[in-house]
Amino acid sequence: MPPISDTSHDFHDRPPLLEARGLAFARNDEPIFGPLDFSLHAGEVALIEGDNGAGKTTLLRVLSGLLAPSSGEIRLRGEPLTLARLSPQVALLSHQAGLKHELTALENLRFAAGLHGQRKGLSPMTALAGVGLDGYADVPTRQLSAGQKKRVALARVLLAPVALWLLDEPYANLDLDGIKLVNRLLERHANGGGTALITSHGAYAYTSGTPRRIPLRPGIGHRQSAIETAAEQVR
């Protein structure tokens, strides 16, 4: 597989796929993260780094359009973001996998394909095979392990015909093979001109190529920063 920098070079002339300027979010006047500036071009994978409570999940929810930022702006392909323009271009993997336990893995993916559409050349069945769950199509999701549920959720992301992946803790609950699988999926997505933002608290990370790193520090006045200063003083 060619290194990512070569393939992404062609995309750099266009406006960045995703751009954040002075992006900040506060809940009830308590800053959660930001202000944050970054831009992501097609073919780039970025890793959002931060401690527990630093606002990684909140950042992904803001970028997906589920939450409105309290200041700053998000641009998608150079255009300011609105939910209507955004949704056909984003796939979100959040902590709640969005799977129905009463349905089988395949039924869950068929529904996702009906709702979000499906990528050319992929079907719910091949997406399931793509995450290593060939034999599990007709198993109720309830009976799958946490890692297998994660894989079904990844298959849903894989199936969606979108350029931007927002993956919250994609490595959580996965075995070593699963972690390699996530990296392989991300690499293939990036090589195909896609972009991904992933969060991780650092135990496992995207290793192929050199992922962009977006360090996330809690907003000014945040409880977390007080704890950190206290911890440093102890040291």
Partner: peptide, 17 residues
């Protein structure tokens, strides 16, 4: 309720429809 708890509701909101 169940759609909210398992995250399906988020997926509905994020769909382009």
């Amino acid at each position: 309720r169940s759609d909210y708890e398992d995250g399906s509701l988020e997926q509905l909101v994020l769909s382009s429809h």
